[in-house]
């Protein structure tokens, strides 16, 4: 491998790591392979597919990443297998370099093996590559044997912990539920609103959105503490969930703000649903034994209808503007979008 090629491979690896980080993609070997190939520009179709996902703001969740891998990397063709293996080789190489750094001394011999590896062309046949990697593994094991036993065990444990952490990270990353209230989280809301709006655009059906905000929520937190605040949030989430129909979609949008997507619902019906929520909250207030006693919780609600052909952000903005108007008009009320935004 010439110096130039090493530099190039290095910059591709750097770009790969940076992309994994910016999209919050777990750094598994498969994901590393996908993005290494993307940055190396080895497969135009993979590149185009990923570019389409990026330009459409699509999410690289576990399903998407698995599909990318199985579509572009599972072919049995030898050429692809060689490429794949060289990617894994680079992975191994990086890991071993990390190990060498950790072990500190006695890396001399190991360095020689690395040099041998680097001087060979990664694009060579599969068998040659296998030999090179095997050699590397043997050398790395020798070195590991010389370092302290404790250090080695620590390294093993660290690997296991890292794997566990990765699983946990993926689970958290791909979660669609708000842990506190049990309704959909913001991320899930973003995905669902696009899907539902796409269907509404096709069908021409009405589609409405509600934004619900708890009045004087800061006062609740300041007076009775955050635990009480959390109880209030859970109670509101339940009340909203019970006041809407099965096909409606409730999400925690942020702090004390909730969103409800209402398919096949026009402006008048959306206001009715919003009023039902507001009244249900008044009818069944949260019963808490607090000192000082809590004043009844109320909400302000903004409503707006989707206009196909307008950006989704505009629609959310119009709903938010209606909510803002409800707040300004004295709270504990519903306002329909009347083009303030």
């Amino acid at each position: 491998m010439s110096t130039e090629e090493v530099v190039k491979a290095r910059s591709i690896a750097d770009a790969t790591v940076a992309t994994l980080r910016s999209f919050e993609i777990p750094a598994t070997p498969a994901n590393y392979a996908i993005w290494y190939e993307y940055h190396a520009g080895l497969s135009p179709n993979l590149q185009k597919t990923i570019d389409v996902m990026i330009s459409n703001d699509a999410r690289f969740d576990e399903t998407a990443l698995q599909d990318l891998y199985s579509l572009f990397f599972s072919s049995a063709k030898e050429a692809q297998a060689v490429r794949h293996t060289s990617l894994l080789a680079l992975d191994t190489l990086q890991e071993i370099v990390g190990l060498a750094d950790g072990a500190g001394a006695d890396a001399h011999q190991f360095g020689a093996a690395l040099k041998g590896f680097a001087s060979k062309d990664l694009g060579q046949s599969l068998d040659n590559l296998k030999g090179l990697i095997e050699n590397l593994v043997v050398e790395s094991k020798k070195m590991a044997g010389r370092s302290e036993y404790v250090g080695l065990r620590m390294r093993e444990s660290a690997d296991k912990i890292e794997a566990l952490e990765r699983n946990l990270e993926s689970a958290i990353r791909d979660s669609t539920i708000d842990a506190l209230t049990g309704v959909a989280n913001r991320k899930s809301f973003e995905t669902v609103i696009r899907k539902i709006a796409g269907d509404a655009m096709n069908s021409g059906d009405d589609l409405s959105l509600l934004m619900i905000d708890i009045d004087h929520f800061k006062r609740v937190n300041d007076t009775w503490g955050h635990q009480t605040g959390d109880t209030v949030l859970r109670h509101l989430a339940q009340t909203v969930q019970q006041a809407v129909r099965g096909g409606d979609h409730v999400a925690r949008y942020g702090g004390e703000e909730f969103a409800v997507i209402l398919p096949r619902t026009d402006a008048r019906s959306a206001v009715n649903v919003a009023e039902n929520i507001r009244k249900a909250l008044a009818r069944e207030p949260l019963q808490l034994d607090l000192n000082p006693p809590m004043t009844p919780i109320t909400v302000s609600i903004g409503a707006a209808c989707y206009e196909p052909g307008d950006p989704l952000a505009d629609w959310v903005g119009r709903t938010d503007a209606a909510l803002y108007h409800a707040k300004n008009e004295g709270r504990n009320r519903v306002e329909l979008d009347r083009g303030w935004n």
Partner: peptide
């Protein structure tokens, strides 16, 4: 989904825009 995008590109689509 990825499979649809990949299929479209493979069959000669120049780009892919998601609704809405």
């Amino acid at each position: 989904d990825v499979e649809h995008i990949q299929k479209a590109i493979e069959c000669g689509a120049d780009d892919y825009l998601m609704k809405p």
